[in-house]
Nucleic acid binder design. Structure first.
Lengths: 130, 130
DNA sequence: CCTTGCCTTGACGTCGGCGTCAAGGAATAC
DNA sequence: GTATTCCTTGACGCCGACGTCAAGGCAAGG
């Protein structure tokens, strides 16, 4: 199949496929007329890349998974290098989520304090006027 | 004070201050020789910006806080517009944290599955050989 | 006078993952 | 023949918050 069909079947763009090729991630065979040619295996590699991209992996981080599939393994994560990326990514995510949760809590307190201050300014010393 | 001193006292760079000025966020008075001149109030505005930046706010999102301080309010979040940004940011954070938690769980399962598969491949049908 | 250290504006570089446009070749439909 | 649609390479644009370099001005110390 050609680049347009592969892009459509994978739910991405031809530009993206050319970009992956430029990064050496998904090289293509060439037909006599110079057109890029792909097969079903390429679709599997591409699907693996897309899944990981959706997870927030950088392109380079998908490389071990692609290499693993290309080496004939049943899944992209059947290789130690891929598992290592999983673990790094998990640690990274845990750290990030923790940071964001901290920020979230601080912001929540800031908002509560600011709302309280605004309320007191609007109705000052309410209990003294009764 | 001049730009270098303000930058140092705020723990940032002169480039950053010029950038803020170019965005209209922190304009500076000028001395006769053309040098930018700042006062203690500018340091407060800048500190407010930096705190919010550290929280992950975009520069534009800090503008209501700066405007609020400049209007003479005691804090950057003493104005409704600032509170609105707080609330938007909280919602945004909650959404993001939720997404990341989902990804984290999926990744954790992927890793567990892949590790189990690798283990079974290494010691296949262990209970059948006993 | 000369050096040093601050300041000025202007402009290009960074990072990732593409989008988008341009100019032209190739294959298919009619 | 020609209209359409696919394909090719090349190259600039984008986003955000600056970093970094260049060329030159201004002030103070020795």
């Amino acid at each position: 199949m050609r680049i347009g069909e592969l892009a459509e079947r994978a739910g991405t763009s031809t530009r993206t496929l050319r970009y992956y090729e430029s990064r050496g991630l998904l090289p293509a065979r060439r037909a006599d007329n110079g057109y890029r040619t792909y097969d079903e295996d390429d679709l599997r590699l591409l699907s693996q890349i897309r899944v990981l991209q959706d997870f927030g992996f950088e392109l380079e981080e998908t490389r071990p998974f692609v290499d693993c599939l290309r080496a004939g393994h049943p899944a992209g994560d059947s290789c130690p290098a891929s598992l290592a990326v999983y673990r790094r990514k998990l640690a990274e995510l845990d750290g990030l989520i923790g940071q964001l949760a901290d920020v979230r809590d601080q912001l929540g307190r800031q908002l509560a304090d600011a709302e309280r201050a605004a309320g007191e300014a609007a109705v000052p010393k309410c209990e003294m006027t009764g």
